[in-house]
Design a protein around this nucleic acid. Structure first.
Lengths: 202, 202
DNA sequence: TATTATCCGTACCAATGAGTACGGTTAGAG
DNA sequence: CTCTAACCGTACTCATTGGTACGGATAATA
């Protein structure tokens, strides 16, 4: 198997692992099932990813990587603050609430007590990576006078709180389905308006 | 074993189950271990609680019950709005972020895919039970003119979002320890101030 | 004191799943 | 074309754990 083939095969396996994770959860996903669905052998899985945790670490890392790029661009345009805020909020909700992300977060949470590092990896590749971009964005607008001076980290957290509410928890608990695009946009709009009400200079 | 003894014994077992859940998580907690710690027999556990899920359903229900009473009183006094908001927020944070509550939420989340009803029970006994009290509280203050008219349910969710931020998720992921009382109070104060900034009539 | 129901501890069963080993096959390298 | 390395499928080991069975002890009750 040559290199491009291996990469493609690897991604195929990670796709299948992600799908299985969404359907059955971490505990409910056996290596055998992933192998069967991927028409791969357990031995290959273990050779490539070490063990079960390693496989899902790879899932988390790849998922995070595909995200990272989206946000960096999102927050670095020079548009007015409100539309950017709305676009960013929508993208963030879309991303944090979709089935794959929820499955990944559930996996990380359910393995916390098993001494697994999944949660650390998820945090490092997720929040730790994107939040600074958002904070810088807020600082830029503070300096340009569009936002009143304040601790940008705290302001960022306020926006996140207004945006998410307890949606993520309720998704994690399986109490609500993925919101429709329309609801998401509406929510992002409202959160942005509220945020500007608190922090805007107008 | 007479009745009061049984009740006390039952609570003792639920305490131990809760502690074990905090330490090891749902998956990491075996019925054998609970039995051993409680100096009980597995057979008694199964006789009293049906199965593993039944045991932890009982844990959730008892925990929720002990909470419910706190909030009802909290929100029905006639004090000014801000101190009540701060007190309620502090109590809520204290309650949602402590080790036991986090362990319970982790358990419910990790069992979602297994078709367990733990999450439904948690929601019914938790959010569904306390949120209406808070909404009524907001409505009362709207009618008395202390709060500007608005959808009280939406306002309630905003307060929750401002209050929690992503603290709960980070606690669930094991990324941060339980906040100190002082931080909690400070956070409740800030969230209340922000909320009144958005919704207060003054 | 005798009786009976409950509970404890231990042993047991069946199922599951992580991780390993291996023979057969395929596909790329020389 | 041959050879070799990687991969697939299957089978196997081993540990864990949910759930059940049972004998002996214990405490309430008559």
């Amino acid at each position: 198997m040559n290199d491009p083939q291996r990469i493609s095969r690897r991604n195929e396996i990670l796709d299948i692992a992600t799908g299985t994770l969404s359907e059955k959860g971490y505990r409910g996903t056996s290596m055998l099932e992933v192998a069967r669905r991927a028409s791969a052998s357990k031995e290959t899985l273990y050779a490539w990813f070490g063990d079960k945790q390693g496989l899902f670490e790879a899932v988390i890392r790849r998922n995070a990587q595909s995200v990272q790029t989206v946000f960096a661009a999102q927050l670095e345009n020079e548009a007015a603050i409100e539309p950017t805020l709305v676009a960013f909020g929508s993208a963030l909700l879309e991303l944090l609430l979709d089935d794959h992300a929820i499955a990944i977060n559930r996996a990380a949470i359910s393995e916390v007590n098993m001494g697994s590092g999944l949660a650390q990896i998820l945090s490092a590749a997720g929040r730790e990576e994107t939040l600074p971009h958002f904070i810088l964005f807020l600082e830029r607008h503070q300096q340009s006078g569009k936002l009143r001076p304040a601790d940008p980290a705290q302001a960022a957290e306020e926006y996140l709180g207004l945006l998410m509410g307890d949606l993520q928890i309720r998704r994690l608990l399986g109490l609500i389905p993925m919101p429709k695009k329309k609801e998401i946009r509406q929510r992002a709009k409202r959160a942005s308006a509220r945020f500007l009400h608190l922090h805007g200079s107008a």
